[in-house]
Amino acid sequence: MLEVRGLHAGYGPFAVLHGIDLDVAEGEIVAVLGANGAGKTTLNRALSAVIRPTAGNIRFEGAEITGAGHDAVVRAGLIQVPEGRKIFPNLSVRDNLLLGAYLRGRPNRARNLARVLDIFPRLGERLGQLVGSMSGGEQQMLAIGRGMMAEPRLLILDEPSLGLSPILTEELFALIGRLNAEGLAILLVEQNVVQSLAIAGRAYVIEHGVVALQGDAAALADDPRLRAAYLGLA
């Protein structure tokens, strides 16, 4: 469903990605792992067309989306829950969720809102509250809920466990598994290697802007090269 070939991207003169190949198939959870600064977030920003790739191409559900506008990517159903959540702090929980359906999922907005509140009852208790005052866990729920409002075909989660307690992280991974069980394809970008590999079918390890390792998640979990790549010793 997602095919990335030879993707190069960066910021002005600073090239970050040097030719990434990556695939996500229908119904998969694919993990993208890597140390800080490996290029994971740059990859996500290029996939969501927030930055423009300098070379290579991206196809989503068979259609070329390289160089498309960020709105076209959302309309196609490639939805990202970004690192740091990037929810709207000056808006209420309800307004944040409603804006998730700004471009996509508008016809089913009421039904999707009910579903998100069913998954995250805590958000239902805080519908009128400004989100700037919520805890990190609640903000992460809201960011995922906002993404769900856009009826994603593929959901990119960028560091969703960042800043969450171990218990909340466990709940989060359980939730990711549940969403995937309902048929949602997920690209999980994480630093939490053990839990990500436990839940993913396949994984890519990115190092210095290239794919250093890839393959079956269970096999990678036992691969000594993984630790080396992670510590930058490879």
Binding site: S48, V50, G69, H70, D71, V73, V74, R75, I79, Q80, P82, R85, K86, I87, F88, P89, N90, L99, G100, Y102, L103, R104, R146, A150
Partner: peptide
């Protein structure tokens, strides 16, 4: 006004 990148990711220009 507060979070332009978050808005872009929702398809808002």
């Amino acid at each position: 006004a507060k979070e332009p990148e978050g808005a872009r990711l929702m398809g808002i220009r």
